[in-house]
């Protein structure tokens, strides 16, 4: 059942992305509400998929590779939708839909097997720690999208050559604000994720910190975002520099999420 829902939501995201892209290039206003509705429906189906998966697995489905990425994609969609509800950022939907679709495709290719939890993971810390961290990452993903859009738009305005993006992307101010809001929400969540992880580690292994690769990289990511926040509040960094740093930090997020698991070994390996 959860698999059917997963396929349906994947199809929904696929159609929504196609719709958003069609709107982006043709600028026909009729397409946008259709794409929005499709995206919304897909996000709802995705939610049901996760709930069913929870029932089938008997534990929070954030342990296998497939589950983690799917949950990440789900957070990005709802994070985007929550922003959509608060303020409009022109054509952010196009970029968000592409990201979600890519994540979902990766999730679809990973093994969907349900793996029983090892005893160390059987704790209520698991849903708290993993979901808080992934939701924080979703906000960072949106901030990264905003930053990419900022750099594209800034390049056209500064270079005085107006191409595809000038009329389609929102104002620099709106994109900078988007980035700021995402970081102000994402950073505390990431901090919370780290703290819960530390406490959980103490409970399971008896030590707060192991210098396991995933922990190390999380700390690096945390420092990168802390640097952005710090510079913004003290020196008033904004715009281009913040955008570049946000993108770099997000690459670090992705590496923490996957790179570490595949390239470096540690206690955080997905159940396999």
């Amino acid at each position: 059942m959860s698999f059917v829902l997963f396929q349906l939501s994947l199809a929904g995201y696929c159609l929504a992305t196609a719709g958003y892209l069609a709107f982006f290039f043709t600028q026909k206003k009729k397409i946008r509400p259709v794409a929005r509705k499709l995206f919304f429906i897909a996000a709802i189906l995705h939610t049901f998929n996760i709930v069913f998966r929870y029932i089938e697995a008997g534990h929070t489905p954030i342990t296998s590779h497939h589950e983690t990425i799917s949950f990440f994609a789900w957070s990005v969609s709802w994070c985007y939708l929550s922003f959509r509800w608060r303020y409009t950022v022109k054509n952010l939907g196009t970029f968000a839909a592409i990201l979600v679709l890519v994540l979902m495709t990766v999730a679809a290719m990973a093994s969907r097997e349900i793996i029983p939890l090892s005893p160390t993971f059987q704790s209520w810390w698991l849903p708290v720690h993993a979901s808080v961290t992934l939701v924080a990452n979703a906000f960072f993903a949106i901030s990264c999208l905003g930053s990419v859009m900022y750099l594209l738009q800034e390049r056209e305005i500064k270079g005085k050559r107006f191409g595809l993006f000038y009329s389609r992307l929102p104002s620099l101010d709106a994109l900078d604000n988007l980035n700021h809001h995402c970081l102000s929400i994402g950073f505390p969540l990431l901090t919370l994720g780290l703290i819960t992880g530390v406490l959980w580690a103490k409970q399971v292994w008896g030590a707060y910190w192991h210098w396991d690769p995933k922990e190390t990289w999380s700390l690096i990511t945390w420092f990168l975002y802390a640097a952005v926040m710090h510079q913004r509040f003290t020196v008033g960094w904004r715009g281009r520099r913040v955008a570049i740093l946000s993108i770099v930090a997000f690459v670090s997020v992705l590496f923490t999420l996957w790179g570490v698991s595949f390239l470096l070994k540690g206690v955080h390996n997905y159940a396999s």
């Binding site: 738009q153 305005i157 000038y166 929102p170 104002s171 620099l172 101010d173 709106a174």
Partner: peptide, 9 residues
């Protein structure tokens, strides 16, 4: 128009 693209509002 440029000012709007830079400052938004």
């Amino acid at each position: 128009e440029l000012a709007k693209k830079i400052f938004g509002n």
